[in-house]
Every structure is written in C-alpha cells, then in structure tokens.
C-alpha cells in the first residue's frame, strides 16, 4: 500500500471509531443525569474537534504531496 493509501486507511479507521463513539454518546445523553450529561457533552465537543483536526491534517498531507 502506498503512503497515501495508508494515510487514507488510517483516516477512515479513525473516523469510524470517533463517529461511532459520538453516535453511542448521543444515546447515552437521553438517560444521563445532569452532571454526566455535562461531561458527555464536553467529551463530544472534544471528539468533534479531534475529527476536524484529523481531516485538516489529512488534507494538508494530501496537498503537500
């Protein structure tokens, strides 16, 4: 597999994992008590930022090749 291919595979894997976590976190929001809901929302924001960073890093890497 080429370096670009490996990077893409890695991005796909990370997106799958992180988006999967977000989906699961949403289902927990419904029943979580207030303190836990706050914690979940904080972690979800962090995850969304991480996804955006991963995509930006991939775009930057693709542009530099």
């Amino acid at each position: 597999m080429t370096a670009a291919g490996k990077e893409l595979a890695s991005l796909i894997h990370d997106m799958n994992s992180k988006c999967g976590s977000l989906r699961t976190a949403i289902t927990l929001l419904r029943t979580a008590p207030p303190e836990e809901r706050q914690e979940l929302l904080g972690l979800m924001k962090q995850q969304a930022r991480s996804i955006a960073e991963d995509i930006a890093a991939f775009e930057a890497s693709a542009a530099s090749r």
């Binding site: 994992s17 976590s21 914690e39 979940l40 972690l43 962090q46 995850q47």
Partner: peptide
C-alpha cells in the same frame, strides 16, 4: 485511548 470511548465503556 479515546476519552469519549472510555466514558461510554464506563457507562
């Protein structure tokens, strides 16, 4: 390693 995934497992 994912903090959100750890929280989900904890729940």
């Amino acid at each position: 390693d994912d903090p959100l995934a750890r929280k989900i497992m904890e729940s």
